[in-house]
């Protein structure tokens, strides 16, 4: 009995160390962002353990996994949002178009303009709707005059599917919108600076099903134009909107592959158990 337990433990430890990456996406050379052997520590605790992954420009990549598996923490490495947490430490290499984003010469402000982010809770600025969108382009000097800025605001809101709802009240506070509208405003704000990658950290977890459906539609439309990485708790959502899925567990990337394959024919036992609802 005792030996069986140790054997099982040893086997599990072995399984944990390896990441199953499906052949069709095995580390393509033209990936938008690549991560290699990334570890993240919160103080002494290792939250992300040696994760390597490629994010492709043309697809929506979903990170799934149970709570506390490190998927959000890992996502926040892509635009160095973990820098703002004093005790967080990132090791390994993450590249954007072949440039190491943790290189001391990399300007973190520009990086975050190129890699935008949408947060779990809608967080519009307590300013007008117009100002919410115009803020990013203004601080990065993307508009040369007022007409230019108006154009950016309209284009961003239109692309986020919000223009028709708010075009008559651009001076109203962004915080006066409904939760779903606020989240689309945040997406519009992110795309206003014309990023290359958009990171979404559980963007629908605070929304009702109808607002969620709208966001999902929006993601579908943005696909291809921006590389999108989305962290989600909701497996159906991952199945609906993503083309690539990465399953995280206990800080490890367990399996990474084509969404359809991951959901219909996962190779790792832990993935199968999670997908079928045996844990998580």
């Amino acid at each position: 009995m005792a030996t069986q337990v140790t054997e099982a433990a040893a086997e599990e430890a072995h399984v944990r160390e390896q990441t199953l990456v499906h052949d069709e996406i095995a580390f393509a050379n033209d990936a938008k962002m690549t991560a290699r052997d990334v570890d993240v520590f919160y103080g002494e605790k290792k939250a992300v353990d040696s994760v390597s992954i490629d994010v492709d420009s043309h697809y929506v990549t979903a990170f799934i996994g149970p709570s506390g598996c490190g998927k959000s923490t890992f996502l926040r490495c892509f635009n160095r949002m973990n820098d703002t947490i004093d005790i967080a430490r990132v090791q390994g290499r993450i590249e954007l178009d072949g440039e190491d984003i943790y290189d001391p010469r990399m300007d973190v402000v520009q990086l975050r303009a190129r890699v935008g982010m949408v947060f779990q809770k809608p967080n519009p600025f307590p300013k007008s709707i117009y100002e919410n969108i115009a803020y990013g382009p203004r601080i990065h000097g993307l508009a040369s005059n007022k007409a230019d800025m108006d154009g950016i605001v309209e284009a961003s809101l239109t692309r986020a599917g919000l223009w028709n709802e708010v075009k008559d009240r651009l001076d109203d506070s962004g915080t006066a919108l409904s939760g779903g509208q606020q989240q689309r405003l945040c997406i519009a704000r992110a795309i206003a600076v014309d990023p290359e990658v958009i990171l979404m950290d559980e963007p629908c977890s605070a929304l009702d099903p109808i607002a969620t459906a709208k966001i999902e539609e929006l993601i579908e439309e943005l696909k291809g134009r921006f590389a999108i990485v989305i962290v989600t708790h909701n497996m159906q959502q991952a199945a609906r909107i993503s083309q690539r899925t990465a399953f995280f567990h206990l800080g490890n990337l367990v399996e990474y592959g084509d969404t359809e394959t991951i959901f219909t024919n996962p190779r790792a036992d832990r993935t199968r158990d999670y997908i079928t609802g045996r844990f998580g």
């Binding site: 520009q110 975050r112 947060f119 967080n123 600025f125 803020y135 945040c186």
Partner: peptide, 23 residues
Amino acid sequence: VPPSIRDAALGIGASRLQVILHH
């Protein structure tokens, strides 16, 4: 000040000074 405001500003590439002064 809710940390979400800080996150939002940092997330679209505001510098530390801009986050403090503008938000």
